[in-house]
Protein backbone atom coordinates (compact mmCIF):
# COMPACT_ATOMS: atom_id res chain seq x y z
CA UNK A 1 0.00 0.00 0.00
CA UNK A 2 1.84 3.07 -1.19
CA UNK A 3 -0.95 5.55 -0.78
CA UNK A 4 1.32 8.49 -1.28
CA UNK A 5 2.09 7.70 -4.89
CA UNK A 6 2.37 11.18 -6.36
CA UNK A 7 -0.17 12.11 -8.97
CA UNK A 8 2.76 12.94 -11.22
CA UNK A 9 0.76 12.29 -14.35
CA UNK A 10 -1.37 15.31 -13.52
CA UNK A 11 1.62 17.61 -13.18
CA UNK A 12 1.81 20.13 -15.97
CA UNK A 13 4.90 20.20 -18.12
CA UNK A 14 7.63 22.37 -16.66
CA UNK A 15 6.41 21.94 -13.08
CA UNK A 16 8.98 23.12 -10.59
CA UNK A 17 10.20 21.18 -7.57
CA UNK A 18 7.98 23.45 -5.50
CA UNK A 19 4.97 22.36 -7.56
CA UNK A 20 5.88 18.69 -7.36
CA UNK A 21 6.36 18.95 -3.60
CA UNK A 22 3.09 20.70 -2.86
CA UNK A 23 0.73 19.96 -5.74
CA UNK A 24 1.42 16.43 -6.89
CA UNK A 25 1.30 14.33 -3.78
CA UNK A 26 -2.31 13.49 -2.91
CA UNK A 27 -5.42 12.57 -4.89
CA UNK A 28 -8.49 14.81 -4.89
CA UNK A 29 -10.57 13.00 -2.28
CA UNK A 30 -7.80 13.01 0.37
CA UNK A 31 -8.43 16.50 1.70
CA UNK A 32 -12.08 15.90 2.59
CA UNK A 33 -11.29 12.61 4.29
CA UNK A 34 -8.48 14.28 6.22
CA UNK A 35 -10.93 16.99 7.34
CA UNK A 36 -13.27 14.28 8.68
CA UNK A 37 -10.65 12.53 10.80
CA UNK A 38 -8.84 15.70 11.83
CA UNK A 39 -12.14 17.25 12.92
CA UNK A 40 -13.09 14.29 15.08
CA UNK A 41 -9.60 14.28 16.60
CA UNK A 42 -9.83 18.01 17.21
CA UNK A 43 -13.10 17.62 19.12
CA UNK A 44 -11.38 15.13 21.43
CA UNK A 45 -8.32 17.36 21.70
CA UNK A 46 -10.45 20.31 22.79
CA UNK A 47 -12.02 18.08 25.45
CA UNK A 48 -8.58 17.18 26.81
CA UNK A 49 -7.28 20.74 26.95
CA UNK A 50 -9.75 22.61 29.12
CA UNK A 51 -11.22 20.23 31.73
CA UNK A 52 -9.92 22.44 34.55
CA UNK A 53 -12.37 25.17 33.53
CA UNK A 54 -15.33 22.87 34.21
CA UNK A 55 -14.51 22.08 37.82
CA UNK A 56 -15.00 25.74 38.77
CA UNK A 57 -18.18 27.00 40.41
CA UNK A 58 -19.99 28.36 37.35
CA UNK A 59 -21.62 31.14 39.32
CA UNK A 60 -18.94 31.54 41.97
CA UNK A 61 -16.37 34.33 42.30
CA UNK A 62 -15.03 35.78 39.07
CA UNK A 63 -11.26 35.66 39.49
CA UNK A 64 -9.39 38.77 38.47
CA UNK A 65 -6.61 37.51 36.17
CA UNK A 66 -3.05 38.08 37.39
CA UNK A 67 -1.44 38.12 33.92
CA UNK A 68 -4.10 38.17 31.17
CA UNK A 69 -3.04 36.80 27.80
CA UNK A 70 -2.16 39.57 25.34
CA UNK A 71 -5.48 39.65 23.49
CA UNK A 72 -7.50 39.64 26.71
CA UNK A 73 -5.32 42.52 27.87
CA UNK A 74 -5.88 44.35 24.58
CA UNK A 75 -9.64 43.80 24.80
CA UNK A 76 -9.80 44.85 28.45
CA UNK A 77 -10.91 41.39 29.65
CA UNK A 78 -9.69 41.30 33.24
CA UNK A 79 -11.75 38.65 35.03
CA UNK A 80 -12.83 35.07 34.52
CA UNK A 81 -16.52 34.44 33.93
CA UNK A 82 -16.68 30.75 34.89
CA UNK A 83 -20.06 29.88 33.39
CA UNK A 84 -18.91 31.16 30.00
CA UNK A 85 -16.61 28.13 29.58
CA UNK A 86 -19.63 25.84 29.19
CA UNK A 87 -21.41 27.47 26.22
CA UNK A 88 -18.09 28.26 24.53
CA UNK A 89 -16.91 24.66 24.90
CA UNK A 90 -20.22 23.27 23.60
CA UNK A 91 -20.17 25.67 20.66
CA UNK A 92 -16.54 24.75 19.91
CA UNK A 93 -17.31 21.03 20.03
CA UNK A 94 -20.35 21.50 17.81
CA UNK A 95 -18.22 23.50 15.39
CA UNK A 96 -15.59 20.72 15.39
CA UNK A 97 -18.26 18.20 14.42
CA UNK A 98 -19.70 20.50 11.72
CA UNK A 99 -16.19 20.93 10.38
CA UNK A 100 -15.52 17.18 10.52
CA UNK A 101 -18.70 16.26 8.66
CA UNK A 102 -18.46 19.06 6.14
CA UNK A 103 -21.43 21.16 7.22
CA UNK A 104 -20.88 24.96 7.04
CA UNK A 105 -17.18 24.15 6.98
CA UNK A 106 -15.66 27.62 6.81
CA UNK A 107 -17.94 29.23 9.41
CA UNK A 108 -17.22 26.20 11.60
CA UNK A 109 -13.47 26.83 11.32
CA UNK A 110 -13.97 30.45 12.34
CA UNK A 111 -16.10 29.32 15.30
CA UNK A 112 -13.44 26.79 16.38
CA UNK A 113 -10.72 29.41 16.25
CA UNK A 114 -12.77 31.89 18.27
CA UNK A 115 -13.66 29.15 20.76
CA UNK A 116 -10.02 28.16 21.19
CA UNK A 117 -8.97 31.79 21.65
CA UNK A 118 -11.55 32.21 24.42
CA UNK A 119 -10.92 28.90 26.24
CA UNK A 120 -7.16 29.23 25.95
CA UNK A 121 -7.32 32.82 27.15
CA UNK A 122 -9.35 31.77 30.19
CA UNK A 123 -7.04 28.87 31.06
CA UNK A 124 -3.79 30.76 30.57
CA UNK A 125 -4.68 34.09 32.19
CA UNK A 126 -5.21 32.94 35.78
CA UNK A 127 -1.50 32.72 36.44
CA UNK A 128 0.01 33.84 33.15
CA UNK A 129 1.51 30.58 31.87
CA UNK A 130 0.82 30.59 28.15
CA UNK A 131 0.83 27.06 26.75
CA UNK A 132 1.74 26.20 23.18
CA UNK A 133 -0.71 23.36 22.66
CA UNK A 134 -2.99 25.33 20.37
CA UNK A 135 -0.28 26.93 18.22
CA UNK A 136 -0.02 24.16 15.59
CA UNK A 137 -3.78 23.61 15.65
CA UNK A 138 -4.36 27.25 14.73
CA UNK A 139 -1.91 27.06 11.80
CA UNK A 140 -3.54 23.88 10.47
CA UNK A 141 -7.02 25.40 10.76
CA UNK A 142 -5.86 28.38 8.73
CA UNK A 143 -4.74 25.99 5.99
CA UNK A 144 -8.07 24.18 6.10
CA UNK A 145 -9.89 27.52 5.91
CA UNK A 146 -8.12 28.64 2.76
CA UNK A 147 -8.40 25.22 1.10
CA UNK A 148 -11.39 23.59 -0.55
CA UNK A 149 -11.72 21.04 2.22
CA UNK A 150 -15.46 21.62 2.49
CA UNK A 151 -16.13 20.82 -1.14
CA UNK A 152 -15.60 17.06 -0.85
CA UNK A 153 -16.44 14.25 1.49
CA UNK A 154 -19.06 16.09 3.50
CA UNK A 155 -22.71 16.88 4.01
CA UNK A 156 -22.72 20.17 2.09
CA UNK A 157 -20.78 18.68 -0.82
CA UNK A 158 -23.23 15.81 -1.15
CA UNK A 159 -26.40 17.86 -0.75
CA UNK A 160 -25.35 20.68 -3.02
CA UNK A 161 -23.77 18.41 -5.60
CA UNK A 162 -20.53 20.36 -5.78
CA UNK A 163 -18.14 19.10 -8.45
CA UNK A 164 -15.00 17.27 -7.36
CA UNK A 165 -11.90 19.34 -6.73
CA UNK A 166 -8.62 18.83 -8.60
CA UNK A 167 -5.86 16.72 -7.09
CA UNK A 168 -3.53 19.71 -6.71
CA UNK A 169 -6.22 21.59 -4.78
CA UNK A 170 -6.35 18.72 -2.34
CA UNK A 171 -2.61 18.18 -2.21
CA UNK A 172 -1.13 21.58 -1.33
CA UNK A 173 -2.96 22.18 1.97
CA UNK A 174 -2.07 18.69 3.20
CA UNK A 175 1.58 19.08 2.24
CA UNK A 176 1.69 22.52 3.87
CA UNK A 177 0.25 20.96 7.05
CA UNK A 178 2.91 18.27 6.95
CA UNK A 179 5.65 20.88 6.55
CA UNK A 180 4.30 22.87 9.49
CA UNK A 181 4.00 19.82 11.79
CA UNK A 182 7.41 18.42 10.87
CA UNK A 183 9.14 21.77 11.22
CA UNK A 184 7.50 22.40 14.60
CA UNK A 185 9.82 19.78 16.09
CA UNK A 186 12.81 21.15 14.20
CA UNK A 187 12.15 24.69 15.44
CA UNK A 188 11.83 23.36 18.98
CA UNK A 189 15.42 22.09 18.67
CA UNK A 190 16.57 25.39 17.17
CA UNK A 191 14.92 27.25 20.08
CA UNK A 192 16.92 25.18 22.57
CA UNK A 193 20.15 25.89 20.72
CA UNK A 194 19.34 29.60 20.34
CA UNK A 195 18.86 30.32 24.02
CA UNK A 196 20.80 27.59 25.77
CA UNK A 197 23.15 26.06 23.21
CA UNK A 198 24.39 22.53 23.77
CA UNK A 199 24.34 23.29 27.51
CA UNK A 200 20.66 22.29 27.32
CA UNK A 201 21.79 18.69 26.80
CA UNK A 202 24.88 18.56 29.08
CA UNK A 203 24.83 15.74 31.63
CA UNK A 204 21.18 15.31 32.61
CA UNK A 205 20.50 18.66 30.99
CA UNK A 206 17.26 20.52 31.12
CA UNK A 207 15.38 17.23 31.08
CA UNK A 208 16.81 16.20 34.46
CA UNK A 209 16.01 19.63 35.91
CA UNK A 210 12.43 19.44 34.69
CA UNK A 211 12.03 15.89 36.00
CA UNK A 212 13.18 16.99 39.47
CA UNK A 213 11.05 20.13 39.52
CA UNK A 214 7.94 18.29 38.36
CA UNK A 215 8.44 15.35 40.73
CA UNK A 216 8.92 17.57 43.77
CA UNK A 217 6.28 20.19 43.11
CA UNK A 218 3.63 18.24 45.05
CA UNK A 219 6.13 17.19 47.71
CA UNK A 220 6.69 13.96 49.60
CA UNK A 221 4.16 11.65 51.22
CA UNK A 222 4.50 10.39 54.79
CA UNK A 223 6.28 7.25 53.53
CA UNK A 224 9.04 9.38 51.99
CA UNK A 225 8.03 8.85 48.38
CA UNK A 226 7.12 11.71 46.11
CA UNK A 227 3.36 12.25 45.95
CA UNK A 228 3.15 12.34 42.16
CA UNK A 229 5.37 11.51 39.19
CA UNK A 230 7.46 8.94 41.04
CA UNK A 231 8.80 7.67 37.72
CA UNK A 232 10.20 11.13 37.01
CA UNK A 233 11.89 11.17 40.42
CA UNK A 234 13.46 7.75 39.79
CA UNK A 235 14.64 8.70 36.34
CA UNK A 236 16.10 12.03 37.47
CA UNK A 237 18.54 10.03 39.62
CA UNK A 238 19.95 8.32 36.54
CA UNK A 239 21.60 11.24 34.70
CA UNK A 240 23.38 9.00 32.18
CA UNK A 241 20.09 7.53 31.06
CA UNK A 242 18.54 11.00 30.94
CA UNK A 243 21.45 12.13 28.75
CA UNK A 244 20.69 9.30 26.33
CA UNK A 245 17.06 10.43 26.23
CA UNK A 246 18.24 14.00 25.62
CA UNK A 247 20.43 12.84 22.74
CA UNK A 248 17.41 10.99 21.39
CA UNK A 249 15.35 14.17 21.55
CA UNK A 250 18.13 16.04 19.69
CA UNK A 251 18.21 13.48 16.88
CA UNK A 252 14.43 13.16 16.73
CA UNK A 253 13.86 16.90 16.43
CA UNK A 254 16.74 17.38 14.00
CA UNK A 255 15.76 14.67 11.57
CA UNK A 256 11.98 14.61 11.86
CA UNK A 257 11.51 16.88 8.80
CA UNK A 258 12.89 14.02 6.68
CA UNK A 259 9.45 12.48 6.99
CA UNK A 260 8.35 14.94 4.31
CA UNK A 261 10.30 12.94 1.75
CA UNK A 262 9.44 9.43 2.92
CA UNK A 263 7.08 7.74 0.48
CA UNK A 264 6.77 4.39 2.21
CA UNK A 265 3.78 4.61 4.57
CA UNK A 266 5.26 1.93 6.84
CA UNK A 267 8.39 3.98 7.49
CA UNK A 268 6.28 7.06 8.09
CA UNK A 269 4.16 5.09 10.51
CA UNK A 270 7.28 4.04 12.42
CA UNK A 271 8.47 7.66 12.63
CA UNK A 272 5.07 8.83 13.82
CA UNK A 273 4.82 6.07 16.40
CA UNK A 274 8.20 7.33 17.66
CA UNK A 275 6.81 10.86 17.88
CA UNK A 276 3.72 9.59 19.69
CA UNK A 277 5.88 7.74 22.22
CA UNK A 278 7.82 11.00 22.71
CA UNK A 279 4.59 12.85 23.60
CA UNK A 280 3.29 10.06 25.83
CA UNK A 281 6.62 9.87 27.67
CA UNK A 282 6.56 13.64 28.22
CA UNK A 283 3.09 13.29 29.68
CA UNK A 284 3.84 10.34 31.93
CA UNK A 285 7.16 11.69 33.18
CA UNK A 286 6.57 15.44 33.28
CA UNK A 287 2.82 15.91 32.92
CA UNK A 288 3.28 17.79 29.63
CA UNK A 289 -0.23 17.79 28.25
CA UNK A 290 0.56 17.22 24.58
CA UNK A 291 -0.46 13.56 24.83
CA UNK A 292 -3.40 13.78 22.45
CA UNK A 293 -1.55 16.05 20.00
CA UNK A 294 -0.52 13.07 17.79
CA UNK A 295 -4.03 13.13 16.33
CA UNK A 296 -2.60 15.71 13.89
CA UNK A 297 -0.48 12.94 12.36
CA UNK A 298 -3.48 11.93 10.24
CA UNK A 299 -2.07 14.62 7.91
CA UNK A 300 0.72 12.23 6.98
CA UNK A 301 -1.56 9.66 5.39
CA UNK A 302 -3.99 9.54 2.52
CA UNK A 303 -7.05 9.42 4.73
CA UNK A 304 -9.35 8.64 1.80
CA UNK A 305 -7.54 5.32 1.41
CA UNK A 306 -7.51 4.79 5.15
CA UNK A 307 -11.24 5.53 5.21
CA UNK A 308 -11.88 3.04 2.39
CA UNK A 309 -9.79 0.44 4.17
CA UNK A 310 -11.68 1.00 7.43
CA UNK A 311 -15.04 0.73 5.65
CA UNK A 312 -14.03 -2.52 4.03
CA UNK A 313 -12.88 -3.88 7.38
CA UNK A 314 -16.10 -2.85 9.10
CA UNK A 315 -18.24 -4.37 6.35
CA UNK A 316 -16.16 -7.51 6.24
CA UNK A 317 -16.42 -8.06 9.99
CA UNK A 318 -20.13 -9.05 10.19
CA UNK A 319 -19.91 -11.01 6.92
CA UNK A 320 -17.04 -13.07 8.23
CA UNK A 321 -18.86 -13.54 11.51
CA UNK A 322 -21.99 -14.74 9.69
CA UNK A 323 -20.12 -17.23 7.54
CA UNK A 324 -17.96 -18.37 10.45
Amino acid sequence: MSEMAPAAAAAPRGATRFDRFFFDWFPAESLGALRLYFGIGLALYVLTQYPQLFILDAFGPQFHYTVPIWYFHALGIERNVPWLAWPVAFATLAACLCFAFGKWTRPAIVAIIIGIFILKGMRDSFSGDVHHREVPIFALLILFFFSKCGRTFGIDARRKGWPAIAAWESSWPIRAMQVYIAMFYFWALMAKLRVSGLFWFEHGGRIQETLIARALRDGFAADGHVVNLSLAWELSQKPDLVFVFGAGVFLFELFFPLILFVRDWRLRLVMLIGATIFHFANFLLMNVQFYFYPFVFVCFFDMARVHGWLKRRLRLGPAVAATG
Binding site: V130, V135, F138, A191, S196, W200, A213, L216, D218
Partner: peptide, 28 residues
Protein backbone atom coordinates in the same frame (compact mmCIF):
# COMPACT_ATOMS: atom_id res chain seq x y z
CA UNK B 1 7.64 36.17 18.53
CA UNK B 2 5.86 34.26 21.29
CA UNK B 3 2.39 35.69 21.27
CA UNK B 4 -0.35 33.18 20.44
CA UNK B 5 -1.01 32.18 17.69
CA UNK B 6 2.59 32.81 16.64
CA UNK B 7 5.49 31.16 18.40
CA UNK B 8 9.18 30.40 17.96
CA UNK B 9 8.47 27.07 19.74
CA UNK B 10 10.60 27.65 22.83
CA UNK B 11 8.80 25.26 25.19
CA UNK B 12 11.31 24.04 27.77
CA UNK B 13 14.05 25.49 25.56
CA UNK B 14 15.61 27.76 28.16
CA UNK B 15 18.15 26.31 30.59
CA UNK B 16 19.71 28.80 32.93
CA UNK B 17 23.47 28.42 33.35
CA UNK B 18 24.08 27.78 37.01
CA UNK B 19 26.15 25.45 39.15
CA UNK B 20 23.11 24.58 41.27
CA UNK B 21 19.42 23.87 40.86
CA UNK B 22 16.81 25.14 43.32
CA UNK B 23 13.30 23.71 43.14
CA UNK B 24 10.17 24.03 45.23
CA UNK B 25 9.16 21.04 47.36
CA UNK B 26 5.40 21.28 47.51
CA UNK B 27 3.13 20.55 50.42
CA UNK B 28 -0.34 19.53 49.28
Amino acid sequence: VDYFPLSWVPMYGFREESDRLTVAVGDL
